[in-house]
């Protein structure tokens, strides 16, 4: 019962954060809304017994990536008058909702066709660092290595893109 209340609270917070993200005019406000969503999602992960992902969601996502985004927003020093004038954005959002409604209802239909299963009691180790680590390094070793290369490439790419360039001829 307590878990249901928590789920309701977190999901409402997450949706509100998402709505805030797409409606606020200033990116800083949007970013803060996104942080709310991220933290709520972390709570949901905890409800789903994903301990490691819960921790990483808080540390890496809500912590590192979001602070990077906020740092960039501050670095660019965006003033309100520099922002694009988006007078019709609510109209656009409304149009978007209309267009997306079929998608949503289609997905909903599919989800409701999944047989309802009661959550079973899990063993102690589910979602812990050791267990996820074992799966990661036993069954998912190659994708893991590929992702590490991807990160390296992204690092180099970011340096090349944003770094100071020498004046080309």
């Amino acid at each position: 019962m307590f878990a249901e209340w928590l789920f309701a609270a977190f999901s409402i917070l997450a949706v509100l954060g998402g709505i805030g993200l797409v409606t606020f005019r200033h990116p800083m406000n949007s970013a803060m809304s996104l942080v709310v969503t991220m933290i709520s999602l972390a709570g949901l992960y905890a409800l789903l017994s994903a301990k490691l992902i819960f921790a990483i969601q808080l540390i890496v996502y809500a912590g590192a990536i979001m602070s990077l985004i906020i740092f960039i927003i501050m670095f660019l020093n965006v003033r309100t008058e520099d922002l694009p004038e988006e007078k019709g954005r609510f109209l656009y959002l409304f149009g978007g909702v209309v267009v997306l409604a079929p998608v949503f209802f289609f997905l909903k239909k599919i989800i409701q066709s999944i047989p309802a299963t009661k959550a079973t009691i899990l063993g102690d180790g589910f979602g812990g660092i050791k267990e996820v680590g074992l799966v990661l390094f036993k069954d998912w070793l190659l994708p893991f290595e590929i992702v590490s290369i991807l990160l390296l490439v992204a690092l180099v790419g970011a340096v090349v893109l944003a770094g100071k360039r020498r004046m080309s001829k």
């Binding site: 978007g96 267009v99 997306l100 079929p102 998608v103 209802f105």
Partner: peptide
């Protein structure tokens, strides 16, 4: 893209 997605969903 979204319109296409929507039509396919329908």
């Amino acid at each position: 893209m979204v319109i296409g997605l929507s039509i396919i969903s329908l």
